[in-house]
Design a binder for these strands. Structure first.
Lengths: 337, 337
DNA sequence: CTTTAATTTGTAATCGATTTCCTTCTATTT
DNA sequence: AAATAGAAGGAAATCGATTACAAATTAAAG
């Protein structure tokens, strides 16, 4: 790989001139500019990012730590970052709790800040990240007024979904949320459950503790939830899972035990992953605008990073989601806006 | 974030001494070492990777460009990289063809080399990558003897799967491979198809061109394949898809059109993703040892990078896969080693 | 008690880029 | 033709770490 001095030597100019040609400060004569560009071409020169980062004390790189792969969200992040001249580096953090090791890139100066999509993380660790860097969370929410969050309006859309289930004649409506290792529900689960509670309250049904539990993310968690509900003396007639993978696992376990979906128990999910259309019965879900969430998260990051005095009020963006109705909840399949 | 000079100032030593304490060259007096470690502790100092990379002209970072998310594979890569003292940065490259922009990190000096899991990529681009960097491919294969590849023995295991389908009484066995935008099949598809061909040849059935096609990766490709097969005058009685997502899409389309799986048509997949156990009927598949593939890919990278003269013979590692038999192919569900 | 060897420590160069500062050159004005 | 303003380009500092080399200190040997 060629360096700037090799380009300078080949073009017979100083390194300063090469840098000026490539970075726009346009006080370079046409003749020299041509020579430089030709040398760049011939040597296939690409400026070394490490050198630039060091000199500028800025990496122009965003760290994205994700726990579940949402292609549209990643695309939204990448597109918005590219538009702002930033690189993106991804870190995969499996498991319900994200630990400090995932942020080594941040602490060691390889990124200017981070976007945390759908990440559950210890409050203390999160606070220390906020102290040192610009951090934007998305998907997962929080009640911390200083946090920067981009997410859908969980409570509202969960309320709508629950109302829809009620319209379909369901009365014993269960919910399955996502919890971390210690069994604390994710904050988005609380919001969604609150929406469900509100819809039930509207028709005078109080919250039945038995019908609401939190599991770990993934198919297995859904299967466990189904087994639990089937063990109850009074089974639910609808199960609203706060993630599609959980709903898929739930449906599988119900079917295996001879329970018909949606006839005996309706099942709804959340996220509207592609799999929803490809399982049997197709799964009713909540479509999150993942691409827009990713894009907004980066825009928010840019705003905070450039304009914001440290540790002021958090910026919280809520986007609209919509119901996607399919066969798993009975009724006729439509998309409700 | 503190720098090495701040640590040096606080400990009242030179920066060289701080570096020596932290990098092991152990000729530092106990007294000074203690002072340095205390300053490091108090300032929460973490060496800046950008500075280190520049000085050492080495990033100790691997770029991983992936097109489909395989958690175990990523874990295998991360674990092996960490064991060798390397960082990993992920890049997501959706779509069937990976273009040069995904490798900017490499060309701009942010990584020493790359691992390419399940990546389909233009030969010319790949060759130019091999010219400049240490590259290891995994999952996807190639017939280039200079390439470094870690993968399962596709032909052998596909042959076994096809034999199993034949044992189950199937005779018209179709295959669905993965192709890129131009319709060229991925190399792993060719290998798997050759295995299927061999198994059919063993019982005297010649290859029927009509029964073998390539689609784009994902559920939709599988649905398209199913539609095509159902349009044939003589339908197949088994469909062997070379990716699980394709098989899932295929089954959905078959079911929607009233075709019973496995009674009318058996379906088998490849990869043994978690979803296989959670759809109905559970999907027979080929279990790839993804964690080991990731680990071997990194080990291979290290060997090539440190020992190898440029552009010598490629290192090709083949690992064993095994059949996972479930209801989608009839028969009794078992795992065959 | 000196001389020499061994060990520890600090100074300064280095990696590749950007940018400040200063010099050189050209063009304009009087 | 001289004076001055303005433009263009080069030399050198800078970012944060590592490390070769030189200097300083200590230990060992005579």
């Amino acid at each position: 790989m060629a360096t700037i001095s090799e380009v300078a030597a080949k073009a017979n100019v100083s390194v300063a001139t090469v840098s000026r040609v490539l970075n726009g400060s346009c006080k370079v004569s046409e003749e020299r500019r041509r020579r430089v560009l030709q040398a760049v071409e011939e040597l296939q020169y690409e400026p070394n990012l490490v050198g630039r980062m060091l000199r500028k004390s800025e990496t122009r790189t965003l760290l994205v730590v994700f726990s579940i792969m949402l292609p549209d969200l990643i695309r939204g992040i990448k597109d918005a970052a590219a538009a702002a001249g930033y690189e993106v580096i991804l870190q995969y953090s499996p498991g319900p709790d994200t630990d400090a090791s995932q942020f080594a890139m941040l602490y060691r100066g390889m990124a200017d800040g981070a976007i945390l999509p759908e990440i559950q993380i210890d409050r203390t660790l999160l606070a220390s990240l906020y102290d040192h860097f610009t951090i934007v969370q998305c998907g997962e929410t929080t009640n911390d007024p200083q946090a920067h969050v981009v997410a859908v309006n969980n409570e509202e859309i969960a309320c709508q979904m629950t109302r829809y289930l009620i319209e379909q004649g369901r009365k014993r409506i269960a919910t399955v949320g996502i919890g971390d290792c210690q069994g604390n529900p994710a904050y988005f689960s609380r919001e969604r459950r609150e929406g469900a509670r509100r819809a039930l309250a509207e028709i005078g049904i109080p919250l039945d503790r038995q019908l609401h539990l939190d599991v770990q993310t993934g198919y297995r968690g859904g299967a466990e939830a189904a087994d639990y509900f089937l063990s109850l003396p009074e089974r639910p007639d609808a199960i609203f899972c706060f993630q599609d993978t959980v709903a898929v696992g739930c449906m599988q376990s119900l079917r295996r035990q001879g329970v018909a979906v949606p006839e005996d128990i309706a099942v709804a999910g959340f996220d509207d992953l592609e799999i929803c259309r490809f399982i049997d019965p197709p799964l009713t879900s909540v479509k999150q605008p993942f691409y827009e969430i990713g894009r907004e998260a980066v825009r928010t990051w840019m705003i905070i990073h450039h304009d914001q005095p440290k540790r002021s009020i958090g910026r919280q963006v809520r986007l609209a989601a919509r119901l996607v109705l399919r066969e798993s909840t009975g009724g006729s399949p439509v998309v409700v806006d």
